[in-house]
Design a protein around this nucleic acid. Structure first.
Lengths: 214, 214
DNA sequence: TAGATTGTTAATCGATTAACAATC
DNA sequence: TAGATTGTTAATCGATTAACAATC
């Protein structure tokens, strides 16, 4: 299995999204600059990405849509559906559960964990909710290797540790808290507070630039 | 106003979070390597970041916590509270509304917009909900320059256009859809589908690496 | 002083960009 | 052929890393 850079992986995911839209619209082939728009990048970069996963284009027609979707899927996806765990069933957790339900056929949330004993045993959005203590058994039983972490600040590190010990190898972390995990666990932070601060900063820059240019 | 790189801005936001925790614990000063842990970076990088915003440390005690928090806040924050709009009041939108309510004193969601006429006029989590057509008036009236976009796929581009025209200069986009906006609008994408795909890919890499090493 | 830390400079690395040849 | 696109190589850029001097 080849290993591409993280940026390339991100872009491949975005390309595929556009390709599916194109396919839905009956388009048979795309040019690199069509895909470049999707990632606000250059056509040359797109071609390099596609070459990395062994896709060749045609100087007359560009790239074959079906071929590309297949190649990206083979690269990004597992053969089987990847079972995912969600930890934390607050407002955000429930929203994520609903969000991911419909967004990906190959990634499926199959178990939900929460500290609250009241939630244990209940079924939320079609998912059985387990207590944190049941994690080792459930994760092993369902062969879960990926988790979405949507617990409140302060609880994230502990939950991450439990996930790691249970055998999870990738965590999508929504808590604004850095996770200390071993090198065999990939962590992707979705730090919404940081992102909003950043946007607010850049918006202010844009605003003062505009006013300054007047 | 100085302009730092996007990465530096992100890290400053993270440093501040750790500093506030340290301050809460009664700590008066920190070393660069304390902060480095927060961003999984190096101490030298932290020092460079802090120098960029004009902070000097002391080779004996490191950096003064209060001093650092003030300097970062002066750099990142506006003097006043920044009014923020939320567009899209589905499950995710409501979760975000609740999330941001408590997470930042300087960023406050002051208006909520939704297409659904049933939601118009209602108050959700203490926020008045407006119809999309009211956007120009409300955004101008409340001097909103930052927006959080949590609408379903397909509606994002149109909403972004309306926001731009209303005067918004920064958008935090949760829709898995690229936004075409002018250069005066900063867009930060929180692409949860892409992030989960990426984590799943990296988890699989870790897994096969482990099994291969056996 | 000795030791840990900060501040500064040069070297390295990776990714992006630009330029151009090859192709249909 | 002509023209737009792909594939490939070299140049550029930015950020990170490493090394070391300065400081308390």
């Amino acid at each position: 299995m080849k290993i591409a850079s993280e940026k390339t992986i991100e872009r491949l995911s975005l390309y595929r999204r556009l390709l599916r839209v194109a396919k839905g619209a009956g388009q048979m082939s795309v040019y690199s600059h069509d895909l470049a728009e999707m990632v606000r990048g250059t056509a040359a970069q797109v071609r390099r990405d596609l070459m990395e996963i062994g896709c060749a284009g045609n100087s007359k027609k560009g790239y074959d849509v079906d071929n590309l979707i297949d190649a990206i899927s083979e690269f990004l996806d597992s053969d089987d559906v990847t079972p995912v765990a969600l930890v934390g069933v607050g407002n955000l957790g429930r929203a994520l559960l609903q969000f991911f339900e419909s967004h990906h056929p190959k990634l499926k949330i199959v178990a939900v964990f929460d500290n609250d004993p009241e939630k244990s045993g209940r079924v939320i959005h079609g998912c059985r909710c387990y207590g944190m203590s049941e994690m080792p058994v459930v994760v092993a039983g369902k062969k879960i290797t990926v988790a979405v972490l949507a617990v409140p600040v302060g609880a994230a590190q502990n939950a991450a540790k439990q996930l790691e010990e249970a055998g999870v190898r990738g965590i999508l972390n929504f808590a604004p808290e850095p996770l200390r995990v071993g090198p065999s666990v990939a962590v992707e932070n979705m730090d919404m507070t940081m992102a909003l601060e950043k946007v607010a900063y850049m918006a202010r820059q844009n605003n003062s630039k505009e006013n300054g240019a007047k």
